[in-house]
């Protein structure tokens, strides 16, 4: 009986603790604005997830259901509409993302990154054999470039430079962002990077 009381008290304190953390996290974003490159960054991060996992769109929607995200993630069309806020897309809709949508996308990306962490880690590691690493990078960058060609506006000079860059610097940056945004701590880090103080 005592033990049961102890457990319930402990659970209450954990819930209180998590609520306090959420409140303090919300306070940190009081005088903040969404950064200009946020829709672009989020779309490219999802594009990297799609590169690393075949049929990632289905698993992203499933994950969204698991986490209990809003109706924006109930259908492929709604999800695609959200991604079309990226101005570099072929089908740019001149729309912007709401704070709620950004928070949901951050949560989703961070949980997807957690699942894909072993693959991301392999690509970022410099301590494995060079030839193997080069092969992995060749596969990854060529697949990502195919996806970029399919979906992005090729008349944009930025996209042109991305496709012609042989060092894949931007792709590496995206992988680093994904690796550092795994889990709860990673999600709060990623969220902070998508805003700036006004």
């Amino acid at each position: 009986m005592k033990k049961a009381n102890l457990v319930t008290n402990q659970n209450k304190s954990v819930i209180k603790g998590s609520k306090n953390l959420e409140i303090s996290a919300e306070k940190n974003f009081l005088n903040c604005m969404i950064a200009n490159d946020t829709p672009r960054k989020l779309d490219f991060l999802i594009l990297v997830i799609e590169t690393l996992q075949i049929n990632a769109n289905d698993s992203i929607l499933l994950k969204a259901k698991e986490i209990g995200l809003s109706d924006d993630f109930s259908s492929r069309v709604q999800f695609w509409k959200m991604r079309c806020s990226n101005p570099l897309r072929n089908s740019y809709t001149f729309s912007s993302l709401s704070v709620m949508q950004i928070n949901s996308l951050v949560e989703l990306i961070s949980s997807m990154a957690e699942n894909l962490y072993p693959l991301i880690r392999q690509l970022l590691s410099t301590k494995e054999s060079k030839t193997l690493n080069q092969e992995r990078w060749y596969l990854f960058s060529s697949r990502l470039k195919v996806l970029i060609r399919e979906r992005m506006n090729l008349q944009r000079s930025y996209i042109d430079t991305l496709l012609s860059d042989e060092n894949n610097e931007f792709f590496r940056e995206l992988l680093i962002i994904l690796s550092l945004s795994c889990g709860k701590g990673g999600a709060s880090r990623l969220k902070a990077s998508l805003y700036h103080q006004s």
Binding site: N28, I176, K184, G186, Y195, H196
Partner: peptide
């Protein structure tokens, strides 16, 4: 990223009732 993940797991673990002397994740100014 491995080390960061370890420390992330620790700071959000409810089995620890310790106040860590760390800064919160705040957005930077432009």
């Amino acid at each position: 990223s491995d080390l960061t993940r370890c420390l992330d797991l620790l700071r959000f673990d409810s089995r620890f009732n310790i106040k860590w002397d760390i800064n919160p994740d705040i957005p930077f100014s432009k």
